[in-house]
Each structure stands twice: as C-alpha cells, then as structure tokens.
Design a protein around this nucleic acid. Sequence first.
RNA 1: GUGGAUGUAGCUCAGUUGGUUAGAGCGCCGGAUUGUGAUUCCGGAGGUCGCCGGUUCAAGCCCGGUCCUCCACCCCA
Length: 458
Amino acid sequence: MANKPSIPKGTRDFSPTEMLRRKYIFSTIEKVFQKYGFLPLETPAMENLETLTGKYGEEGDRLIFKILNSGDAWGGVSEEVKKGLATGEVAPGKFASAVSEKALRYDLTVPFARYVVQHQNEIAFPFKRYQIQPVWRADRPQKGRYREFYQCDADVIGSTSLLNEVELVQLFDDVFSALGLHVVVKINDRKVLSGIAEVSGQPEKVVDIVTAIDKLDKIGREKVEEEMRAKGVSDEAIKGIAPLFDLKGSWSEQRPLLEKWLSSSPMAQQGLKDLSFTFEAVGALKSAKLEYDPTLARGLDYYTGAIFEVKAAEGTMPGSICGGGRYDDLTGIFGLKNMSGVGISFGADRIYDVLLETNKFPTELGGSTKLLFANFGEAEAMHCLKLLRTVREAGIAAELYPDQVKMAKQFKYADDKGIAYVAIIGENELIQGIVTVKDMKTGEQKAVKQDELISAIA
RNA sequence: GUGGAUGUAGCUCAGUUGGUUAGAGCGCCGGAUUGUGAUUCCGGAGGUCGCCGGUUCAAGCCCGGUCCUCCACCCCA
C-alpha cells in the first residue's frame, strides 16, 4: 500500500457527519456575532510575507508557512546569498525570504489590522467585524493542535469604551447558551498585572513575570517562582508578587485586597476600576459564569487592557476554548496610530471536542435526508419524481434512490445515512395510488394516500 | 525546535526464544429471503506486516535510517 494517498501532517478531512456538526458550531457563532452588530470579513489565505513577519515574536516567525515563489525561485536568489549558503554564512531562515514573498495567514488578527489600515478611509468607526476562516501554523501537531485550523474572531476597533468588553462577555454567554454548554469566562486586566510588576520593583520585567504567572495552575507556585528567578526577576520582587498567590474568592472579596496592595500604582488602580465596571455592567448571565482570575495572563504581548479566557465547565478539556483581550495599538505597526480595539476568538476545534464528549450536539442536524423513495423501476421512479418535487417544495429533504437494485440494499442505504422514512411505491401502490411509508426507527409500516404523504412523515 | 512511545486487513488489536501458508472481532461483499435496514444463520474477498537498507540459512519479530501518529516540553487555538 505504498501508493495509499494521504494528506499533509497536521491537516484533516472532515466527514459529512463532522461537517454537519462543525457547521452547526460555526453558524451558531455567526448568528450571535451578527446579532451583536458584527459584520463579516474575509481576507486572502496568503499575505505578503513582510505583512506577517515580526508580528508574532521570534517563535511565531518560525511557525509561519512560507510559499515558494512561482517560476524559477532559485534564479531570483542573488549570487551573494548562494555563496553564503554554501559557506554557512547565510542562515537558512534568511534564504527563505529570498525565495518566498508570500505566506499563509497565521491568525486573523494581523490580516484584520492590515485591512483596517489599508481601508481606513472607507471604514465607519468603530468598526465591528467577524471573521471565520482557517489559519496555518508550521507547529508540531499534537492532540487538539493542528497545522490547519479555524479561528472565529470578532473585534471592535476604534473604540476605547468598556461597553465593548461588557458586550463581548455577554456575547460569550449567548453563544454558549445556544450551544447548551456551561462555561466559565475568566477575566483579568493587563494594567493590574503591570501594576503588580511595578509594585514589586521590577516594572521592566512585566512580560517575564506575566508569562510565568500564566502557568500557575499548570506547574504550581514553586515552579513559577523558579522560572521568574531564571528570567532574572529578583528575590525581592518575587516576594513582592507573593500576595497574588493567596488571593481567593469572588471579585468583590478580592477587590479591596488588591486596591490596598496596589495602592501605589495608578495604572493598577485604573485596571481595577475597569474590571469593576465590567463586572457590574455585565449583569445576569445565562450559561456563563464570569470570574476574576488574578493569574490569567495570556501569552500575546500586544494585549494592554482586559484579557479573557473561556473554559468549559463540563467535560475534561483542560485548555481554554476561547480567548481575547484589548490591544491599544494593533494597527500602529502598519502606520495607523491610536486605534484601540478589543476582540475575542472561539476555538472551534476544541468546542467541537467538548460538545462531542458531553453529548451536546443535537441529534438531528439539518442537512440529512428525511425521506427516501425506494426505486422499483422506471415507471415507478418517474412517478416518485413527481411526488419528490412536492415533498421538497414542502421544505422536506428527500431523495429518490437512483438505481433499481434489490430492496435490502436500498433500505441499508437509508439506514446507513440515518434517513428517518422510506417511501415504497411498487406496482401495487402505483395502481392503488397509495404510498407505503416505513418508519426506520420503529420499523412500523403503513399505507397512506399520496396527498397524505407529507403529514405522515411530519 | 528538544526528549520519548508507536506503526500488522477498511477499523480495533493478537502474533511465543527469529522457523513453513500472518490471525481474531467488528466492518465490507454474496447467499438463506426476486418487496424490507438495524437482529439471526452460512459463505467470500481483503495484508509488499509504514517505507528504505542491514544482520541471518531464515525477519512481522533483531539493528540503522526515514516518514506518520501519539505523549511531554516550548508555544499556542
């Protein structure tokens, strides 16, 4: 089986059953996005390489899929680079940019920022857009981690109002109510985290402190402190951060402690004020629980204000199923200053896994045939064709078995495809003007008049 | 990118210290039943043992390489 076809590492086929479920997730999210006033946007699968490089950090650059220039890519390489490659003076990474000027998109946020800058004069701000498209990463695949996967993003750009944060929390709640899943929405504010770094005496170490704290629930307090020490955070500063680990309870319980502890940092005070506003304004939620998580940090360093993460309250999925946050200067790298935005992203693949595990997918997902006409031969089939039309006009998904084969095979087809009813019109039924309808679930069979067919299977 | 495990039929897996013709269950196809699926009975097809090389009289089994999948790390959705 050496010639057995296959697909690239980390990519997947989606079977019809999987696609019906995926579309159910996507369309649920999309409907809610639209209900909140977000408009659809699509950008190309590939961007200019220079649009993407340098936006995701050093690690990120390595994970960008680059596209080889068409034509004679090698011919476009300068003699200098060719020589350098041979001697090892030119790194392979440098060579890549010599033969590649396009790359597959790595996320939806950077192409969105590019779009906003490029079309700034046509856009009405605040601009609310959603985008549901695949992205590609040259990462090593693992369970729940692929080289091609979908992101479902919604962002508001050009507004600093905290009402946006409030609405996004409500949007999370709406989506997971529609999907019937209980979740915990965790929230924090980067300003508070910066304040903690400030109070500890090493404000320049925010990023290192934050990424270490982010791992708290995974590796424990000791290892977090160890990592901070390894990154050059002083023992004194680590001591200064210590109160964070003892924080417990609800937001209203934690808030006074934080205010006291971080009283010397105006930035932290602002963050706490913002969080309070969000907690108050969000109001009652249906399926989600909003929780303050002082250790929620999120890796991406472009976040500047609120940060979100959603975890399933059911099932065994350990990681987050959604994320998001506010960024003050996403478009600055493309030359448009003072554009604050806040956005969220749904991890469709992980949501799929959770819904499957917890058995939350509706049993009947639109798209599957409800009624199959068995094929008894040319005359009967022609007759069925007419009935088929009226059934379909009534909005019922129906099909006629195209070949005249033995009944067992046709029934098996209906069974395999999960079709609820089979209409049998053989010689007898044709003469009498009736239809024998079989319920595939119960196995019951009854004869009805032709014009009663629709009500018989409704 | 680092470290580890795995790969045998469409799927899930057996396969003895290296020894003739590599097995099972499920699925698939045909028949029992020329107007009835899911249940029953009978029969059948399907494998270059991931790929390449090495050791050996002899390799699914031992050795090396390579690819895939999985796990941990890094990072992330």
